[in-house]
């Protein structure tokens, strides 16, 4: 039986790395990769706590809804990124600073 703290430490490391990726990448899709990693780290936390609740499995159900919301978020974000790329011809978030060109 793995101690609960080890799951939490792995999840904290993945969350911090995902946050650093979302801050440092100068590419919209690179930022999206970091956000996906952060959502996965949160799911590890929920599932690690859920193993102490085998009758109701509230954490696993919450993780399931997080996966659904992440899938919806990625599709809409990619569609918006394609529109922004078609309009500005760049994927650098620093260069997309004006609303109307």
């Amino acid at each position: 039986m793995i101690p609960l703290q080890h799951y939490l430490i792995v999840a904290a490391a993945l969350f911090s790395i995902g946050f650093a990726i979302a801050v440092t990448k100068r590419h919209f899709i690179g930022m999206l990769l970091g956000i996906e990693l952060m959502l996965n780290a949160v799911n590890i936390n929920l599932i690690a706590f859920s193993q102490y609740d085998p009758e109701k499995l509230g954490g696993q159900l919450f993780a399931l809804f997080v996966i659904v919301v992440a899938a919806a978020e990625v599709t809409v974000a990619l569609a918006i990124i394609l529109r922004v790329y078609g309009h500005y011809k760049t994927v650098d978030p620093d260069q997309v600073s004006d609303l109307q060109k």
Partner: peptide, 20 residues
Amino acid sequence: LFFSFLGVAALYVLAGADFL
């Protein structure tokens, strides 16, 4: 990111969440 997702999925299995 593919390998990272695979590692996370293996952690789910070790935490008893096979469906997830």
